[in-house]
């Protein structure tokens, strides 16, 4: 395909523009998914609470996300007095950038990946660990007490849960012996289908990873950074219009990212759960959708955790559990007591 560009643009420019096209081919669907995830969230929570959810804009409310986006884009951006203008404006971008950059190494099917690098998992960990800056900078630059408190809470929470998340991923890479996301999926391929996935031997790690993921994305029940009943809206209390929309986009893009990573590393990515049925992108999409449904379900079901309980869960429960499982997996692998 790239050959068709080379005569017009020359080698380097053709490569550059071809990569740009591939980037857009990932980012536009991700953004559309974010748009419909917001609608799905309102619909799912609506049905859980015995309401109908939005159903006015377009057939069955299907155009609601676009109405929301238009509304947010036309609103005025208010910069508070005494706020640091440059940091205030750049903070939403700081939180969106990692959420989108991490998709560069995400494989969608065998060979269907923008950049198939060997240290893919490390790259994802490193890039997502930068997302916290958007929150902290936003809280500080707003020159507001509520925003600063929200930023502090979120920062402490993300640092705490990142460790548990990292250890859970160490177990995954021990199982597959690689940091490359495509290899991680391919090592889960057995002729047993679902039983070969990392989910079975690493089930506690899957739970730890997913709950840490919910905490990392600041979603309910770990949304103390927003905590609208205590600190109004936390770090984004002063944001309006487009800047708020960018924060919103980052949060939902991060949710999809966590769901996709969980499906790749624990649920076998694009592999089919039943032997005999062909693999494909559809399976990955279905798994991501199920994981995203869990996010929404959690939000509709659990009350918000108290702050000290969040810290306790992160440091005193998850980290010891992951270390114990790490040693256990190590011993099992060393002794070759592997049932499959």
């Amino acid at each position: 395909m790239i050959d068709f560009l080379t005569p017009y643009l020359g080698n380097q420019l053709a490569f550059f523009s071809w990569t740009l096209i591939k980037v857009l081919a990932i980012l536009i669907p991700v953004t559309l998914c974010v748009a419909y995830l917001t609608l799905a969230e309102r619909k799912v929570i609506g049905y859980i609470q015995l309401r109908l959810g939005p159903n006015r804009v377009g057939p069955k409310g299907l155009l609601q996300p676009f109405a929301d986006v238009l509304k947010l884009l036309t609103k005025e951006i208010i910069i508070p007095t005494g706020a640091n203008k440059f940091l205030f404006v750049i903070a939403p971008m700081l939180s969106l950038m990692p959420a989108l950059a991490a998709w560069a190494v995400m494989p969608f099917a065998d060979g269907l990946v923008l950049s198939n690098i060997d240290a893919g998992l490390l790259y994802v960990l490193a890039i997502t660990s930068m997302g916290v800056y958007g929150v902290i900078v936003a809280g500080w630059a707003s020159n507001s007490k509520y925003a600063l408190i929200g930023a502090m809470r979120s920062g402490a929470q993300i640092v705490a849960y990142e460790i548990a998340m990292g250890f859970a991923l160490v177990c995954v890479l021990m199982m597959s012996g690689s940091l490359n996301l495509t290899t991680i999926v391919e090592t889960q391929r057995t002729n047993l289908g679902l039983l070969g996935w990392n989910l079975i031997p690493l089930f506690p790690m899957f739970v730890v990873y997913f709950i840490s993921g919910v905490a990392e994305t600041n979603r309910a029940p770990f949304d103390v950074a927003e905590g609208e009943s205590e600190i109004v809206a936390g770090f984004h209390v002063e944001y309006s219009g487009t800047t708020f929309a960018v924060f919103f986009l980052a949060e939902y893009a991060n949710m999809i990212l966590i769901a996709a990573l969980a499906s790749l590393m624990f649920l076998g990515g694009w592999l089919s759960p039943i032997p005999g049925i062909p693999d494909g992108f559809g399976w990955l999409a279905a798994k991501v959708a199920v994981m995203l449904f869990f996010f929404l379900w959690f939000r509709a079901t659990f009350p918000r955790y108290r702050y000290d309980q969040i810290m306790r869960l992160g440091w005193k429960v998850f980290i010891p559990v992951t270390i114990v499982w790490l040693v256990l997996i190590g011993v099992l692998m060393r002794m070759d007591w592997w049932p499959w």
């Binding site: 490390l122 960990l125 490193a126 890039i127 660990s129 800056y133 920062g155 640092v159």
Partner: peptide, 16 residues
């Protein structure tokens, strides 16, 4: 990657 993971992702957050 470990420079970003350790220094940018953890150490500098605590510094800030």
């Amino acid at each position: 990657i470990s420079l970003i993971l350790v220094y940018v992702g953890a150490v500098m957050v605590l510094f800030l």
